[in-house]
Write a protein that binds this DNA or RNA. Structure first.
Length: 106
DNA sequence: AACCTGACTCGCC
DNA sequence: AGGCGAGCCAGGT
């Protein structure tokens, strides 16, 4: 089990209609400082369609500017399609959709 | 094999 | 309050 695998497992656990921050993912796999690795892992996204990387946002709810599915706007559309609301064109309504308790995968 | 960089976050100054 | 450095892992040069 590599760190990347843990990241993918954690991301797949995000319920539909909810979002999680890189920090939440990192914390779930053991170290919140891994947030950077989380981003890198999703950047490589080896299994698109399986790994809902569009449900992962920065700690303030802003979507990544380097989203690779067709632009950040595409990510926003996907989230809206799941019932996620936005406080801003690029900021997810964390107060309503942020995952409160992401299970630890250690 | 070492160094640099990257979808991040937090703690100091 | 805003800017800067540190810490983490993997992959490319």
């Amino acid at each position: 089990m590599t760190t990347f695998d843990k990241v993918y497992e954690a991301v797949k656990l995000i319920p539909e209609g909810s979002v999680a921050t890189y920090g939440q993912i990192a914390e779930a796999i053991g170290n919140k400082r891994l947030s950077r690795v989380v981003g890198y892992a999703l950047h490589g996204n080896p299994q698109p369609g399986v790994i809902p990387c569009h449900r992962v946002v920065k700690r303030d709810g802003e979507v990544s500017s380097a989203f690779a599915f067709g632009g950040a706007n595409r990510q926003v559309e996907l989230l809206k399609g799941e019932g996620v609301t936005f406080v801003d064109a690029t900021h997810v309504n964390m107060d309503a959709h942020c995952v409160r308790a992401l299970p630890m995968i250690l």
